[in-house]
Design a protein around this nucleic acid. Structure first.
Length: 104
DNA sequence: GTGTTGACCACAG
DNA sequence: GCTGTGGCCAACA
């Protein structure tokens, strides 16, 4: 059984440290498909690993929480609980923006 | 196999 | 800052 794109997304999402957030683009980049954040969102949307994969830690490149299955409100509250300060529905990617290690 | 949809991003105006 | 356009990917009908 080969590792699929979605599997990689889940693996990386699970890797996100607490109190930090990442963007779909960041994950896409880590997967070498930076031009396809859509596929990342699609994989997370299905999110078969719902409780295992902290999809709420994944936000848009603009810092907006974007959309979530259980409602963005729900995710924002959780992020805030983790220590992420959200302002006007946005997250300071400058401070909480987590970046995956990308091999050259 | 084709067409549409989707939790998107980047660029131009 | 917003709108419109083009683009890639995966999954579903």
């Amino acid at each position: 059984m080969s590792i699929t794109f979605a599997q990689k997304v889940y693996a990386l999402t699970r890797r996100i440290p607490k109190g930090k957030v990442t963007t779909y683009s960041a994950i896409a980049k880590a997967l070498k498909i930076k031009w396809s954040a859509r596929a990342v969102g699609n994989a997370l949307n299905k999110n078969p690993f719902a409780p295992k994969v902290p999809c709420h830690r994944v936000v848009r490149a603009s810092g907006e929480v974007g959309g979530f299955a259980s409602g963005p409100k729900r995710k924002q509250a959780m992020l805030k609980k983790e220590g992420v300060i959200i302002t006007q529905g946005r997250i300071d990617l400058n401070k909480y923006g987590y970046q995956f290690k990308i091999k050259s």
